[in-house]
Design a protein around this nucleic acid. Sequence first.
DNA 1: GTGAAAGCGCTAACAG
DNA 2: CTGTTAGCGCTTTCAC
Lengths: 337, 337
Amino acid sequence: MVTLAEVAQHAGVSASTVSYVLSGKRSISANTRQRVERSIRELGYHPNAGARALASSKSNIIALMVPLRTDMYVPVMMEIAIAVATSARAHGYDVLLLTGEEGPDAVRRVAGSGIADGMILMDVELDDERLPLLRETDQPSVLIGLPADTSGLTCVDLDFRATGALCVEHLAKQGHQDIAVIGEAPAVYERHTGFAERTLEGLRSRSRELGVRLLHRPCEGGYDAMAVTLARILDERPGTSGLIVQNESAVEPLLALLRQQGRAVPEDVSVVAICPDQVAMQASVRLTSVAIPAQEMGRHAVDHLVAKLDGRGSDEVVLIAPELTVRGSTGPAPSRS
Amino acid sequence: MVTLAEVAQHAGVSASTVSYVLSGKRSISANTRQRVERSIRELGYHPNAGARALASSKSNIIALMVPLRTDMYVPVMMEIAIAVATSARAHGYDVLLLTGEEGPDAVRRVAGSGIADGMILMDVELDDERLPLLRETDQPSVLIGLPADTSGLTCVDLDFRATGALCVEHLAKQGHQDIAVIGEAPAVYERHTGFAERTLEGLRSRSRELGVRLLHRPCEGGYDAMAVTLARILDERPGTSGLIVQNESAVEPLLALLRQQGRAVPEDVSVVAICPDQVAMQASVRLTSVAIPAQEMGRHAVDHLVAKLDGRGSDEVVLIAPELTVRGSTGPAPSRS
DNA sequence: GTGAAAGCGCTAACAG
DNA sequence: CTGTTAGCGCTTTCAC
């Protein structure tokens, strides 16, 4: 292993000079800098992470806590995680992957051991048990998701309230009067995951404002569950002409069922999905959808965390504005017979 | 921040004693141990990761390199990643998440900086550019996936050759004579990803042995691509009665298309999938399938890496035996007309 | 613009 | 069974 001291010797300078060349924290003559850089290259020097962390009290690591559960749409989580890792690298940080398994203890461990300079929490619940700890420690952090009480916290999320409103608006504008929402799995609501409830709020309040009728049914996802849910919806509200789906694993089954029942999309029934663009575009019908901007969320989270670590940055809630893309799955409501 | 020295003082012992209580590397009197443990608890002490890494030359971190691409089935990657993180914690290791973005440089950086004690590489290609570096450095590593040349490497993977063979066998045993394979996206084959080619080998050699006809077509996934692929297959081999799918995003579209064309599963056509159990069970038809044992792969990779780090463990290739689960999508071949 | 030297908090001989 | 001590490799005053 090649050390800073060896580089210094090879370049004929002192250790501190090499250190300063690396950090750029004081001016170095062009000549010296070049000699040092050359030595670094020739010897294949890499600063030792542990030593650096010890001396500087900075690990250049960001901890990312992902949920252990898999009842949420996994590709979105993965996309966020990868976006976080990629953005972090761009800022010179590595990412430590923590699973939800340790729960709140992970927060204690990370903060206590100084293994990471800050942390990003995904899949935050409305009343998340990790938050009290987070507020106690001075560990800078950013949440992806919105808890009930955001005081003293920095949060990044899609504006799900606006998302719900946007979906209803789009359908109402096309004349749909009876709209049904196929939601996430019941467990998601029971856990009081913020995004699911906020979407629902947006859906409800906007439909009240616009005077359209709204029915919401959670759905486990998969073909069988979707079949039951759809049957129940059409039974209760036979006039339903607009569907909003917020559960990726229900999308394709829903389309298959509608096809099977001879209901044409969008002639008989319009479908709006809340899902990643990829899902909307790969489905058997090009879906009008509001995208989940996974990459953007990951990137924002890192940017804000890095800002905090640099002493800039403040506690704030960043809600990303939803965007609805019209594709082939929505159209005018069929005339009432 | 509370340090080891403070704990020592609080407990009235020396620093080394505290260290040894923590590591268990020498015997401590019950009395002393209790006093120390009490102080640790009362002060809320957590060993500093950087200092520990520096002094012991061990970071207790495992680097996990995941691919940046998303043309592979992401949930499997995620499941493996989570299994790795979870197993690693069980061994006292944390996991550093590296994206493929840095490519081979990441190997250099990790090995050079000592930030991780070892690394796990996912999505290894047959002729992976990271492998030469890996062989040069003394960085212990485990690959998930199988490169062309495994000499000097430890690899963990599903036995995809046996998987292909197993699928063909199952269908042949039921009397199917014309079998078609709906494969991964063309890009996957072009990249020479090991698993795709090995599956194909298994499929081909076993069908040769069993005297059944086999047609292989890559497929991008999604509804449209699947429609084209299926049409082409049925055009070339109208008698095809057995389908093998190795592309999760083609599964549901395939089933929808078959339904739409009035081909009953499994009466008219049998379908075997190579996919995670969850996909096989959530599909609109319960699919006979060979599971991708993501968790097991992650766990194995960690176990082997930890063994290496402990000085046990050797270079070897671990192929996990495939298991075919019969569900509702396969049955006897229809009698030839 | 550069060097010397004092730690950062912990581990692991070495010494009793 | 326990204490003393010398680093691990780097950052950062302080001094010139």
